[in-house]
Design a protein around this nucleic acid. Structure first.
Lengths: 337, 337
DNA sequence: TCTCCTTGTGGAAACGTTTCCTCATCTTTT
DNA sequence: AAAAGATGAGGAAACGTTTCCACAAGGAGA
């Protein structure tokens, strides 16, 4: 491995001079600059960021902790985060936790031992005590949370207004004349599920439609969960004419169940999803869904964390982004009987 | 930040002793071991792997270079790679290149500057001269390539037998009585496209069916590309009764085109995909496709690279995995007219 | 009793950078 | 002409570990 020493020797200058040239700090004459640069090229010197990290206390590395990259929401998000990181000269360590708190805590410790400059979390399903612990033990580490709320901690949060999203989805169905609207979502302990449910209830109340508790199901944000619960729901004596799915994945499961029961979407069953992931346009009929600005979430997460790192200051910024309804083909006016 | 010095002072032993205890190397009495461990716990010492990396010349970090994590194939692969890495104590840097060689080379340099212990590539679309350069400049860096062939370089390769996959897909359609079978795939410079095409041709020849060059299209491994080309293909006077898609994404596009043209799958058009990604079960009807052992590819990639790192030796291992046909709902016997 | 292992511990060098400090020269100001 | 500032470059400390080496003490074998 060729080191800064080799370059210094080759260029017949001191180590400090080489470092200064390469970092463009302090004064250097044009002549020595050239000599150094020539030597660098000649030897193919690349430098060691790990040595630099030791003294600068900066690794230009970020940790990204998500449940599962196979989940379409998180792969979209990860891409946005990585792009943003890269444009600021950062790399990201990808960590899949499967929502397992034990796995998460191990990743956190590893990341810190490796000297990451910040950590971005996206764990929508879990009320996370690990994060509280990190915050206590490493108060100076910049952290951004995506999609969950932490009232008491000085931690940056980026949220979508899930209440608003739930409200929009439900309102859309109400406008189409639906009265029997079910709601299938992720875990009841998940912040986004709860808020979406609130929006759902609010819209129904506003229209004077009583809430039917049989039509509200909290399970998980997965295809399987959508399938299983839709199957149950659609086989009831009085089945809903529309379902608001807490995520596009759940909607995929609902499609599957509907197909199995020979229910045509949207003629016999309207479906609204949440996320506007890749799935939405693949499904047939294409899914009407609530668009979450995933890309913007990722970008903003990076902006905030990079700012925090550059200014060496811990903020508590809470950013709320707003979802929108994307009408496609999976909803239509309810059939009057 | 609490360092090993603090622990040594707290435990009233030397730095070396602390290090020895923590690394379980050399001799240490039970008594001092306890003292050290107690101090570690008391101070909440975590250690700095970056300092350790300096002297050990090991960062326990791997680079993973892919075109795009949003691509379903690569998110599945990434997950497998990350799991494998994690189980060996490694972290991965995720790098999305969009098949851009310039971006790729920048990532490579960054990764090397950060001291990664190895790099895993998966760039199926590009014949990669960057890799040759890395190999020349850093001959000791373990590298694994997924899905492409490099004849002359001492680089580990993990391949699926694409010829075999192409053959199986086409044979399946032939067995169902199809004679007009089209092939839509990724770029003509991509190893996997070429091999799949060879398998396709071989199967047709074997059945004595002449190759219709109008039915062979090389474009890109994307949904859009499948859509666009299927649209063209299916509007010809003599349209194919079956299409073999070079990837599941392409198949998704074909579905879209078929729907637009009011062609029922599989009654009027049979489709076989390639990859057996998440898409396959989401599509309706569910996609018959060639299963590529993505998970195994990821695991093996890690095994090989970790072995290379541990033994500090560069191998050239070429591993070929075999695809299988997964019959679902998108193919059926051709209608006799 | 003497030598030789085994066990246990500490000191110090090394890893490859950055940065602080010092010193020298040259230019400008008073 | 002297003082002050700007420019340029090198020496050495520092970052937080691991590991090599030296040394000491205790027990075993001759």
């Amino acid at each position: 491995m060729v080191t800064i020493k080799d370059v210094a020797r080759e260029a017949k200058v001191s180590i400090s001079t080489v470092s200064r040239v390469l970092n463009m700090s302090g004064y250097t004459s044009e002549k020595t600059k050239e000599k150094v640069l020539y030597a660098v090229k000649k030897l193919g010197y690349t430098g060691s960021l790990v040595a630099a990290a030791m003294i600068k206390k900066q690794t230009l590395t970020l940790g990204l902790i998500i449940p599962d990259i196979k989940n379409i929401f998180h792969s979209d998000l990860t891409r946005a985060v990585e792009d943003g990181a890269n444009s600021h000269g950062f790399n990201i360590f990808l960590c899949n936790t499967d929502n397992n708190l034990q796995k998460e805590v191990e990743y956190i410790h590893l990341l810190i031992a490796k000297g990451v400059d910040g950590i971005i979390f996206s764990s929508p399903e879990v009320k996370d005590k690990n994060i509280k612990e990190v915050k206590e033990k490493f108060p100076d580490l910049p952290i951004v949370i995506l999609g969950s709320k932490f009232h008491n901690l000085t931690i940056n949060e980026i949220l979508v207004d899930n209440f608003d999203g739930g409200y929009r989805a439900t309102s859309h169905l109400l406008e189409l004349g639906h009265k029997d609207i079910a709601f299938i979502s992720g875990g009841i302990d998940s912040y986004s599920s709860i808020e979406r449910h609130k929006g759902y209830k609010f819209a129904l109340n506003e229209s004077g439609i009583p809430i039917n508790d049989d039509f509200v199901i909290f399970d998980r944000f997965y295809i399987e969960s959508g399938y299983k619960n839709a199957l149950k729901l659609l086989q009831k004596n009085k089945r809903p004419t529309a379902i608001f799915a807490g995520s596009d994945s759940i909607a995929v499961g609902i499609y599957k169940a509907a197909r199995e029961l020979n229910l045509k979407i949207p003629e016999q069953l309207s479906v609204v999803g949440f996320d506007d992931s890749q799935y939405a346009e693949i499904l047939s009929p294409m899914l009407t869904t609530i668009h979450t600005p995933i890309k913007e979430m990722g970008q903003r997460a990076i902006e905030i964390i990079v700012k925090s790192i550059k200014e060496k200051k811990i903020f508590k910024e809470t950013l709320v982004l707003y979802p929108t309804l994307v009408e496609r083909e999976s909803t239509m006016a309810v059939h009057s009987k």
